[in-house]
């Protein structure tokens, strides 16, 4: 995460602590109050998991493992108990994420192209503004392409973010074809030697065939400029999303090939974003960034180890 190292670390803690208090913070108090793994304990644990949007399958998996361990292992103190629960959660979560822990943008060739996709209203444009700001702050030159030609005033919104971040933007006032704007942006990025190109796309529901075809076309057309592009395809997921999040990840993957990462937004609210655990364990798409507010510095790199630790930290 070298690029963003110096930036806004306090905000990360804020965002996480809100998540933690709402979700796994409860596990500690549950352990402290119950002290034994019995039917009632497991029921309450199940409630905490399910309320996080982790899904019934993942929940049942963890619960049955905890149950098994409780029978086999001898636990004496609350700490032992906590360890059992923690390890079983980590098995589902951080194990699948381990290979991604030391993520940093590996910018070997210019421009490094990032395509951002997702369903409507998840915060794609806002996340792009924040990403651009962070790259800019890290000394990179950035070009944004506004390939959302559908939503009213999407152009204007992205332009305001580009201005805030102090980066260039390619947009077309009359072109109705998003692929042509993506093509133009990558071409100009290449010609002008920009470090980073970020392509914003219109929000689309993943079950709309023609819109997913449009997305494939955007990718195809960019590859006419640079064959192996894009370097990253980020799927933006709203933390309030329930079980449908898995479908979203599946369908966008199906259309675009492997997604390289997830940006989990709106974690500053009361939602827990537990669906990413399910996405993680089923599709192995790592979370790269989390959004924790509406300000330009409210995007934070996601480190699963720290996240897992924070879930249990006593504070």
């Amino acid at each position: 995460m070298g690029l963003f190292d110096k930036l806004g670390f306090n905000k990360l803690k804020d965002g996480l602590s809100k998540t933690k208090n709402g979700l796994f913070g409860k596990i500690n108090s549950l352990i402290n109050s119950r002290k034994v793994i019995d039917e009632e304990f497991l029921n309450e644990l199940e409630e905490i998991f399910l309320l996080s949007d982790m899904g019934i399958e993942t929940t049942e998996k963890i619960i049955s493992n905890v149950k098994k361990r409780a029978k086999e292992d001898k636990y004496e103190t609350e700490n032992d108990l906590q360890l059992i629960v923690k390890q079983e959660i980590e098995k589902v979560f951080s194990k699948t994420n381990a290979e991604f822990e030391d993520f940093s943008f590996n910018i070997s060739q210019k421009p490094y192209v990032i395509m951002v996709v997702g369903v409507n209203g998840v915060g794609k444009t806002t996340s792009i503004g924040k990403l651009a700001y962070n790259f800019k702050k890290a000394g990179k030159s950035v070009l944004i392409g506004s390939a959302d030609t559908f939503r009213a005033a999407a152009n204007e919104q992205l332009e305001i973010w580009a201005n805030r971040a102090g980066v260039d933007i390619i947009q077309s006032t009359n072109a109705k074809d998003p692929a042509s704007i993506a093509f133009e942006t990558v071409s100009i990025g290449l010609k002008e030697g920009k470090d980073i190109v970020i392509i914003d796309t219109a929000g689309r529901l993943h079950n709309k065939n023609h819109l997913m075809e449009e997305l494939k076309k955007i990718k195809r057309v960019m590859q006419k400029v640079i064959p192996e592009t894009p370097d990253e395809i980020f799927l933006v997921i709203d933390a309030t999303t329930g079980q449908n999040g898995l479908n979203q990840a599946k369908e966008f993957s199906n259309a675009l090939g492997k997604l390289t990462g997830i940006i989990l937004t709106k974690l500053d609210g009361t939602a827990k974003g537990g669906i990413i655990l399910k996405i993680n364990s089923e599709l192995r798409i790592p979370v790269r960034f989390i959004g924790v507010g509406e300000q330009i510095d409210d995007l934070q790199p996601f480190e699963s180890k720290k996240f897992a630790e924070a879930l249990f930290a006593d504070e």
Binding site: L50, D53, T241
Partner: peptide, 12 residues
């Protein structure tokens, strides 16, 4: 409210 909302829908 977004119909894709999960468990948090009730809180909000």
């Amino acid at each position: 409210v977004d119909s894709m909302t999960g468990q948090d829908a009730v809180n909000t």
